[in-house]
Simulated assay, not measured.
Amino acid sequence: MLPAMSSILERINKIAEHEKVTISSIETRINASKGVLSRSLRTGTDISSKWLTAIVENYPLYNAEWLLTGRGEMLRDAGDRFTVKQISKLRADRDKDVQRIPLYPMAASAGIFEIIASEQHLKSIPIEYIHIPRMPECDGAVPITGDSMYPLIKSGDIVLFKEVHDKTNIIWGEMYLAAIKHRGDSFFFSKYIQKAEREGYARFVSANSHHQPVEFPIDSIRALAIIKATIRFQSSF
């Protein structure tokens, strides 16, 4: 067993108790097979580091240092240092003195369909609310996984978004969350959207140069939200 793994298992169980959910629900959120966590809790066997990372990314309100080492408080508090970076400020945007922005879980299996697609929006239950002053109006926030927009957005950052209901209102060159369904495959990513040379297509471009641009028909976009700002916690992971 890895050092202190039994203590980590106990802390995962505390997260489940605090969230008032089952371990099976946590497995679903982190896109793990049924039994990956519950089996370890029952037998005391090691949990793969990728599942610990997934817990950190999908439960951003919990102190990662506490989960991994037991040091500090279980929940992040005002003492955690974080930075808010505004990504998009359009001419029509009006800052609000303060707003209560719902924070949604970002399980890989759920994708954006349960978060920003209009027909699903009411079915998504926020895990918390973020109070942000002097920021353009936002519809929600989600933690991001992956490195396609690194270094602007890194895995674990929280992005604040504003839904786009009409795809003809895409502002070329801005950064978006997009859910795509094309030729039977579904994709979800955060990227810049540029106008493609092909008529009726959009070009999705990463900040990370290791990711090649891709093009999809605009009609394949199932849900879209412009990224207004990011939140990055500075506490040690």
Rank of each mutant, 00 (worst) to 15 (best):
residue 3 P to M: 01
residue 7 S to F: 12
residue 9 L to Y: 09
residue 11 R to G: 04
residue 18 H to W: 02
residue 19 E to N: 06
residue 22 T to C: 06
residue 22 T to Q: 09
residue 23 I to W: 04
residue 24 S to M: 11
residue 28 T to M: 09
residue 28 T to P: 04
residue 31 N to G: 13
residue 34 K to H: 12
residue 35 G to L: 06
residue 35 G to D: 05
residue 42 R to C: 02
residue 44 G to H: 04
residue 46 D to Q: 11
residue 46 D to Y: 00
residue 47 I to R: 02
residue 48 S to E: 11
residue 49 S to L: 05
residue 49 S to H: 06
residue 51 W to Q: 10
residue 52 L to T: 08
residue 53 T to W: 03
residue 54 A to I: 14
residue 56 V to A: 05
residue 58 N to I: 00
residue 62 Y to D: 00
residue 64 A to P: 05
residue 65 E to V: 08
residue 67 L to I: 09
residue 67 L to P: 11
residue 71 R to L: 14
residue 77 D to I: 01
residue 78 A to K: 10
residue 78 A to T: 09
residue 78 A to E: 14
residue 79 G to Q: 03
residue 82 F to H: 11
residue 82 F to E: 00
residue 84 V to P: 03
residue 86 Q to V: 11
residue 87 I to L: 12
residue 89 K to L: 13
residue 89 K to G: 07
residue 89 K to P: 07
residue 91 R to N: 08
residue 91 R to K: 08
residue 94 R to E: 14
residue 97 D to P: 15
residue 98 V to C: 11
residue 100 R to Q: 13
residue 100 R to D: 14
residue 112 I to D: 13
residue 113 F to L: 14
residue 116 I to V: 11
residue 116 I to D: 08
residue 116 I to F: 13
residue 117 A to D: 15
residue 118 S to R: 13
residue 119 E to K: 10
residue 120 Q to G: 13
residue 123 K to S: 15
residue 125 I to D: 00
residue 125 I to H: 03
residue 128 E to P: 03
residue 129 Y to T: 09
residue 129 Y to I: 07
residue 135 M to W: 03
residue 136 P to D: 01
residue 138 C to Y: 15
residue 143 P to Q: 11
residue 147 D to S: 12
residue 148 S to P: 07
residue 152 L to M: 08
residue 152 L to C: 03
residue 155 S to V: 06
residue 157 D to K: 10
residue 157 D to M: 12
residue 160 L to G: 06
residue 163 E to G: 13
residue 168 T to C: 00
residue 170 I to G: 12
residue 171 I to E: 06
residue 173 G to N: 05
residue 173 G to V: 03
residue 173 G to S: 04
residue 174 E to A: 15
residue 176 Y to N: 02
residue 177 L to S: 10
residue 178 A to P: 07
residue 180 I to E: 07
residue 181 K to Q: 15
residue 181 K to Y: 15
residue 182 H to Y: 14
residue 182 H to T: 13
residue 184 G to P: 01
residue 187 F to N: 01
residue 189 F to Y: 08
residue 190 S to I: 09
residue 191 K to H: 03
residue 192 Y to N: 00
residue 195 K to F: 04
residue 196 A to H: 10
residue 197 E to C: 08
residue 198 R to S: 13
residue 205 V to H: 02
residue 206 S to G: 02
residue 210 H to V: 14
residue 210 H to M: 10
residue 212 Q to D: 10
residue 215 E to D: 10
residue 216 F to T: 09
residue 216 F to Y: 11
residue 218 I to S: 02
residue 220 S to Q: 08
residue 223 A to Q: 04
residue 228 K to C: 12
residue 231 I to Q: 05
residue 235 S to P: 01
residue 237 F to H: 07
